[in-house]
Design a protein around this nucleic acid. Structure first.
Lengths: 218, 218
DNA sequence: GTCAGTCGGCTACCATACAAGTATGTCCCG
DNA sequence: CGGGACATACTTGTATGGTAGCCGACTGAC
């Protein structure tokens, strides 16, 4: 089997979980996945362990592993982490941003406007990674990405709506405008508003699929 | 072999790496570790994979696994993540803090004053976790902890000095005082100062053991 | 009908065996 | 003496086997 089976399996599982192709609460059998993907149990198991570390699956010894259900407390926690990191980065970026950075960001926003809904996801990721890079903290992307995974999963069903994407692109543009003009408070406020839109999206998804959610443990 | 070998091995390796019992750059053989710890390669390997995900070790396929060297860029990145999260949490905590919280924090600070240098580490962790809990974002501890691991490792050699510990406890007290009195700016500034002390400690360690460090990739 | 006991099948966990690639030390040749 | 090819001893990656424990369905007694 190919030499990088684990990376392949991990990426595939992660994608399927985030896009809700595998719904929250669904059981994951190591044997079944191994057979289905044409690899042995080892790379599958190692991928599952990594996904568990990231909180995307929950493994119960001797019982089974399940895709983590959507918990509002987890979503709030992930949002806190992401917002703290991106806002702190943006505050530093205000002093360091250059013309080339602004041009790159505007090009990304333009691409997002013309992109099909399916192509929006990677462009969105690149936009936020770019924001981190300006302040020189691109290496914090891993932490942001881990948090973002939970948020993207929780709102994934609401994204295909073209209207939603338009709103997001407008918010991106507002951040870039304020950043380019050096308006600190306006920029961070715009970013906060943008990031917190996830709560609205989650509320929509929650109505469509209440079975994906579980109540927070008291 | 004991049930839960992976958790045991992972905790042990992590501790040895953070405390520099295993120095940066040292090779880690899965076979050797398995024999030394009396378990098979499987739990060792799974632990190594998790440590690699956290950036504490670097595994080169078909060549070897090495404890990650100390990179100043990694340390700066970890510091950025930790500072952003803890400061954001503290800002929210100012509106939510109760008398019981302050009492608990003061008790922790008192315990830190009377603690032997070796016992300081867990008390320090509990203090910072407590700060997160006040704002209701205790679940962000995992992200903080991952970042903190790199910082603690980089300054571990400077901590046994009793004088250093006294300074840290004083800084803890300053944060608690400002938090109890509701002085927002003073509290966050005190926390920032406290967290950034790591750079001084790292400079000391760097002089003692320049071989543990590598230059940043240009 | 109801409940206790048991048995079968499933799970993840740990151990082991095999495969494939890399670095190194050695030997031979120029 | 210097350099290159090769054998060997490692490394991690993958595949497979065996074990302990949990869950559920079935059975039998009350």
């Amino acid at each position: 089997m190919p030499r990088g089976a684990r990376a392949h399996v991990l990426e595939l599982l992660r994608h399927r979980i985030i896009t809700l192709q595998i719904p929250p609460g669904a059981p994951l059998s190591e044997n079944e996945l191994a057979a289905q993907l044409g690899v042995s149990r080892t790379p599958v198991r190692e991928s599952v362990i990594l996904l568990a570390e990231q909180g995307l699956v929950s493994v119960v010894p001797q019982v089974g592993t399940y895709v983590a259900p959507l918990r509002l407390s987890d979503i709030a926690s992930a949002q806190f982490v992401r917002e703290a990191l991106e806002v702190a980065s943006l505050a530093e970026a205000l002093d360091k941003v250059g013309d080339q950075d602004v041009a790159d960001l505007r090009a990304l926003v333009a691409a997002q406007r013309n992109a099909a809904p399916d192509a929006f996801f990677p462009l969105d990721e690149e936009f936020h990674l770019r924001l981190l890079s300006i302040s020189g903290h691109a290496s914090a992307w891993r932490a942001v990405s881990h948090a973002k995974a939970h948020l993207d999963r929780a709102r994934h069903l609401s994204l295909p709506l073209p209207r939603q994407v338009d709103v997001l692109v407008d918010q991106h543009e507002a951040v870039v405008d304020a950043l380019a003009q050096g308006r600190a408070e306006e920029a961070t406020d715009a970013l906060r508003t943008h990031l917190r839109k996830v709560f609205d999206d989650v509320a929509v998804v929650r109505q469509q699929h209440p079975d994906y959610f579980v109540d927070d443990p008291a």
